Simulated scan of single mutants.
Amino acid sequence: MTQSPQSLGTQPFGTYAPAGLVRWIVARTERLPDEDWSARRLALLLRRFAIQLLRGRPLDVERYGARMRLHPYNNNCEKKVLFTPQFFDPLERRLLADRLRPDCVFLDIGANVGAYALFAAALAGRGARILAVEPQPDVFDRLAFNIAQNPFGTIKAVACAVADKAGDLTLFVDPRNRGESSLKVVGTNEGAAIRVPAVTLLDLVRGEGFSRIDAVKLDVEGAEDLVLEPFLRQAPPALHPGLLIVEDGTDLWQTDLAALLARHGYRRIAKTRLNLIFERDGEAAYPASTGISPASVTSSGVTRQA
């Protein structure tokens, strides 16, 4: 019998451990080399078959040092993290692993089910402060569940959007890929719009009492410029993040975000398939342990905000 989404979130972690052929597929796909085109194609074929076998059930797995319950259906992030975690933003994760201090402040804006936030928490110490911000109510519930399965105690989940103004805003939900829901891009399906509370980035940061921000991952589907422009204009320089991982929404931005960041003392240090990575001048250069240089990287506790 098919269980409701609500009941799936109440079952103890481990209830949906991979078994049988699905377990074999997960073990096979997570070992495929991340730079091999044929391996990626094989992973997609195996993933599709495993999803058919699951018939709507989630899977409970450990990824990036954290427990997660993943629903690999209408969310590309969960599909990648479940079946091919090695393909999920590997350079971005290496940079964070080298940069985040034990007492770091890290903001995961557009947190989805928490892959970045949980990865950072697994690396950092108990003095870290990590915010995971996600506006979609059902995706937020998955995020909160994943946070609760781990002992870190350093992640605070906030159920709101981050925008250029505060208030109730319309979020256009992509039913095929929930990770592409946006305040800016109108969805194609009728009824695929919801109202969500929103705050500005500066109000969010001030509300938490932060005096510095070590790193921000900003993935808000084309609205990154709307978030960053007022923040950089109004926030004191002490609050400007040392490292910015920004989803590449160049075709959707209304401003030249790279030029804006350059005026505020940032330089682009990498471009990956999905993201642009900026570093504030005066921050540490690439650590030797990453094995990369800017020239070589040019290709591809839960609170609800009222």
Score class of each variant (00 low, 15 high):
Ala144Asn: 02
Asn146Lys: 03
Ile147Leu: 14
Ile147Gly: 02
Ala148His: 04
Ala148Met: 03
Phe152Ala: 04
Phe152Cys: 09
Gly153Cys: 12
Thr154Ser: 14
Ile155Lys: 03
Val158Met: 13
Ala159Met: 12
Ala161Phe: 05
Ala161Pro: 02
Ala161His: 02
Ala163His: 08
Ala163Thr: 03
Lys165Pro: 02
Lys165His: 15
Ala166Trp: 15
Ala166Val: 13
Phe172Pro: 00
Val173Glu: 10
Asp174His: 09
Pro175Ala: 04
Pro175Ile: 06
Asn177Val: 06
Arg178Asp: 00
Arg178Ser: 07
Arg178Ile: 07
Gly179Arg: 06
Leu183Asn: 01
Lys184Phe: 08
Val185Pro: 00
Val185Met: 13
Val186Thr: 10
Gly187Phe: 03
Thr188Met: 09
Glu190Thr: 11
Ala192Gln: 06
Ala192Glu: 11
Arg195Lys: 14
Arg195Cys: 06
Arg195Trp: 03
Ala198Tyr: 06
Ala198Arg: 04
Val199Leu: 15
Thr200Ala: 14
Leu202Glu: 11
Asp203Trp: 14
Val205Gly: 06
Val205Ala: 10
Arg206Asp: 12
Gly209Cys: 12
Ser211Tyr: 09
Ile213Cys: 12
Ala215Gly: 08
Ala215Pro: 05
Lys217Gly: 05
Leu218Val: 11
Val220His: 05
Val220Leu: 13
Val220Asn: 05
Gly222Ser: 14
Gly222His: 05
Ala223Ile: 01
Ala223Phe: 09
Ala223Gln: 03
Glu224Ser: 07
Leu228Phe: 12
Glu229Lys: 15
Phe231Ser: 01
Pro236Gly: 13
Pro236Met: 11
Ala238Met: 03
Pro241Arg: 02
Leu243Lys: 00
Leu244Phe: 03
Ile245His: 00
Val246Gln: 04
Gly249Met: 07
Trp253Leu: 10
Gln254Leu: 12
Gln254Ser: 14
Gln254Ile: 01
Thr255Trp: 01
Asp256Lys: 03
Leu257Arg: 00
Ala258Cys: 10
Ala259Trp: 02
Ala259Cys: 03
Leu261Gly: 04
Ala262Phe: 07
Tyr266Ile: 11
Arg267Ile: 10
Arg267Val: 15
Arg267Glu: 11
Ile269Tyr: 00
Ala270Met: 06
Ala270Phe: 09
Ala270Tyr: 05
Lys271Tyr: 09
Lys271Met: 12
Lys271Leu: 14
Arg273Ser: 13
Leu276Arg: 08
Phe278Met: 01
Arg280Glu: 09
Arg280Asn: 08
Gly282Trp: 08
Glu283Leu: 02
Ala288Phe: 10
